[in-house]
Each structure stands twice: as structure tokens, then as C-alpha cells.
Design a protein around this nucleic acid. Structure first.
Lengths: 211, 211
DNA sequence: TAGATTGTTAATCGATTAACAATC
DNA sequence: TAGATTGTTAATCGATTAACAATC
């Protein structure tokens, strides 16, 4: 299987992902057009960076002197980032984070569909979280295979994170969203995005302290 | 007031923050020494990057052929990032995220102390979250001033995020940890770290889709 | 048409990596 | 001492920015 090189550089992917929520807000406020200049202002970027980011997307172009159509930019982002599919997702862990995710299931225009919730703790197995019955970790391979799950979201404690990732990798997952503050390793053919929520506090304290 | 330039570049600050949890795990497993090479492996970096990152810290140096003392690296990170103080924090929002934060209060060796929880919804005011009584937003200035609060954590819905930031800025906060997926703006003298948890899913779907 | 914004190529800037000296 | 790793300076690489042409 040949692995195509990602055409969009990661920093641009990050920014483009963030434009999504922003554009949805603009759309909800009935803003039909938006300038690269305004996006830049709101994200503390330059308008060139924004236009370059958008230039990475296929099937979208702006109109000189008018900007970009909010609705079209959103459509292009969705199309370029998900191909129009809804990715199948499983959540590992039953703490506050998994509740958050389940409550936000409809986010990103239903681009993600939760297919199961799993937990390490035998005490939680069978419990109900949202509209899901919490399953044993050993059910992961079956569910991932059976429902063709794409993404595993790791929302467990730091010390378990790598074990869960190993499980997901063996089960044949394509991507992992790691919400713990612990770095995890996966083979090259499995994409990993780390979102270490709590280390943001440390970054911030440095910025404040070094001022 | 003169604003000193941050001496450590932001990418290095990010990585160093992530080393923290990792090093704590090593310490808990009684690993006394660690090579830059091993850190690099575990974070998918090069050992030179790791050594350069560490070189930014004051009062720490490695020993050729032995590596860095885990305990000393941790101590140096704490000292360089927080100056040894515990930063005072308020949390705005009473959803799953604020629960998560309250439960992790002891994280980072008590470097952060929660001083209050606030909410927009009148229905939640007076409710108990962890060991805190939820207060009205209009109490923010008083609490920030009275307890000399450094950091505000924004854990509300996307559409409220900017309003809350404005409130915190007026109250005289020094830094903001924005946990919503919406970009927020603050004046230059207020540090902002954005941790858009859910947009991680979009980044990931691009990586998978573009493969 | 004039003005303003998009799109793109070239230049700059900064972060990462390579090379190598220092050292335990 | 020899070997291995740290620490640092110089080179490279990639992302951002500047300049400007294209266009509505």
C-alpha cells in the first residue's frame, strides 16, 4: 500500500482545523462573506498566511475585493478534511472527558460517529454513559473490526495511555486522538494527534513567569 | 513596566511542558537517569532537539555518558516554568471540563491552586462542584483582585468564550487558558494559550483521509 | 474605471539538524 | 584510557512574510 505524502503541512492543518469552528459561528450569524484579513485579525495571523492556508484546499477560491463565501469555505474544509464521510470513533475511558465528547457528538456537522465506549475498570463495565453501554477493553478488536472504526480516542489516565494505544493499534485502528498528557508511540501507518490539555497550564505559567 | 522578551521559543516551551508528565512517570518508576536520546525516542524527536530544549533551562546540566538526573530535570523544569510559586487559578464554566480540572488540582506538584469556580447560568450559582460553591460571573473581579488570581481557565461554550475573556481581562488576570475551540483575543500583556480539544478530531481526520 | 482584495513567487526569518569539540 | 554522551556552533530546511501581479 503506497502512502501518499500529506500535501498540507501540519501547521497549516492545525490552523485550518481551527478556522472551522470560527466559520461556523460566522455562518450562524449570517455573515455571508469573510476577508482573509478579518480571519487573520481574529487569529492573530497575517492575511497572507490565511490565504496560503486556504490555497491548500481544493475546490475553493476567493473573489478579489469580496473575500471568501463563508458557506463555501466551510464546505471546502469539510470536503478536504473528511472527504465527505463520517469517521467512526470509539472512546476509551469513562471520565469527564468522555462525557464531554459524547455530549459534543453532533459537532463538526456530524463528521464523527461514536461507535462504542470502553473502560479498563471492571466496575464501570455495563454502566450507561450517554446512550452507550460501557464495554470491556477486550471487546475493542471485535467492535473496531465489525463497525470499521477509524479513530480511537484515548481518555484514560496517563499511566494507561500507551497500553490502550497498543490495543487500538493491534485492533487495526487508523488514527488516535490522545487526550492524555503522556506522549504515546504508534507505528507510522497510524496517525496520532496529541492534545495534552493539562500541560497547557504549564506553558501558560512559563509565559506569565518569564514576563 | 518593561516586558522582558521570553527567552525560550514557544515550540521549545511546548515540548518542555510535555516532558514534565513524562519525567514524573520515569521518577515514579525509580528511573534515576535519562538520556536525551531516550526522551527523543519516546517523543519522536532527535536527541539534539531535546538537548537544545534542556539547554534553555537555567541551573541544570547533564553529565556526559550518564545523561540527566530525572529528579533534577523535574526540579529545573518546575523552577524555570513557575519560579517555585503556585499560580492562582479560577475556572469559568461548570461542565465536564471544569470537573476534570478540579479532580486534577494536585497535578504538576501543586503548582496551581484553584481559587474559585464561576458560571454564566443562574441555575448553577450556589451549586457545589468539588469543594467549591459556584459563583456568579460578576464576582470575578472581586475574587481575582482579592486573591491575586493569575490565571483564568475558560471552559464555557464557544459562543461565550470571548465575553468571558473580556471579563477576565478587565478583572486584571495575567494569563488565560482557553479550552474552547473558538479563538479568543486578549491584549498583549495577557498571555493566552489555546487548547482546542475537539478540533484535534479534524486534524486527525485530515491525516487519515489524506493518506 | 478605480480600489481593494485574492493568489503566487521570491525573500526572509526562525527552528531543526548536522558536525564536532568537550567531558565524564 | 576508550567510549559514549553532552553542549554548542554552523548549515540546512521549512514556514512565514514581503512584494507584486491578477482580477472582480
Amino acid at each position: 500500500m503506497t502512502k501518499e505524502i500529506n500535501s498540507i503541512p501540519l501547521p497549516a492543518v492545525r490552523r485550518l482545523s481551527r478556522y472551522f469552528t470560527y466559520l461556523q459561528l460566522l455562518k450562524d450569524r449570517n455573515k455571508e462573506w469573510v476577508y482573509s484579513d478579518q480571519i487573520a485579525d481574529d487569529f492573530s495571523l497575517t492575511s497572507v498566511t490565511v490565504r496560503q492556508d486556504i490555497a491548500h484546499l481544493k475546490n475553493i477560491s476567493g473573489v478579489p475585493n469580496r473575500g471568501y463565501k463563508t458557506r463555501e469555505l466551510l464546505r471546502a474544509l469539510k470536503k478536504n478534511f473528511t472527504g465527505g464521510n463520517a469517521f467512526k470513533v470509539v472512546i476509551i475511558g469513562t471520565g469527564e472527558l468522555s462525557n464531554l465528547l459524547i455530549k459534543h457528538e453532533k459537532l463538526f456537522d456530524n463528521r464523527f460517529e461514536i461507535c462504542g465506549v470502553f473502560d479498563h475498570n471492571p466496575f464501570n463495565i455495563g454502566e450507561r454513559v450517554g446512550c452507550f453501554d460501557v464495554q470491556n477493553l477486550n471487546r475493542i478488536p471485535h467492535v473496531v473490526w465489525d463497525k470499521k472504526v477509524d479513530i480511537g480516542i484515548v481518555a484514560v489516565s496517563e499511566s494507561l495511555a500507551q497500553n490502550i494505544v497498543d490495543l487500538l493499534v493491534i485492533a487495526g485502528i487508523r488514527g488516535i486522538l490522545n487526550l492524555t498528557s503522556m506522549q504515546v508511540l504508534a507505528p507510522n501507518n497510524v496517525a496520532v494527534i496529541n492534545v495534552p490539555i493539562l500541560t497547557g497550564l504549564l506553558e501558560l505559567s512559563y509565559l506569565i513567569y518569564s514576563e
